[in-house]
């Protein structure tokens, strides 16, 4: 399957990265990892790219890591549409001190606007 994994440096995005890479190795997915801007993230995009490349190398798969600038949600939806991706994978949300799950604004936008299936990784 042609999979687009969007990550911006939040904890849940790194969890999504690890699972998607792991799954791509087993399922032989055609995977692209898009490193997007996320204002809520404390990790710089360059470092996010490094971590994504390291995960891909470690899994021994052939996946593209791409830096995507601009509004993260709309860019992901646009890339999925123009390049015929079949699925978008994102982090499954932030957990508050109380244990409440809140879905990030990027996931919210993609869920409501994507024409592909969307997977949120928990």
């Amino acid at each position: 399957m042609k999979v687009l994994c969007g990550i911006g440096g939040s904890d849940d995005s790194f969890r999504a990265l690890d699972r998607t890479v792991e799954r791509a190795a087993v399922a032989n997915d055609d995977l692209t990892i898009a490193v997007v801007d996320n204002d809520d993230s404390s990790v710089a995009p360059a470092e996010v790219v490094d971590r994504a490349e390291a995960a891909v190398d470690e899994a021994g798969i052939d996946a593209e890591v791409r830096r995507v600038e601009g509004d993260p949600g709309s860019r992901l939806v646009e890339i999925a549409e123009t390049e015929a991706f079949e699925e978008i994978v994102l982090g499954g949300g932030h957990t508050s001190p109380m244990g409440k799950i809140t879905i990030g604004s990027i996931a919210e936008f993609v869920l409501l606007n994507a024409k592909t299936s969307v997977t949120l990784v928990r």
Partner: peptide, 9 residues
């Protein structure tokens, strides 16, 4: 049915 945002688990 009364759970909210994942709690109580």
């Amino acid at each position: 049915a009364d759970r909210a945002q994942g709690i109580p688990p």
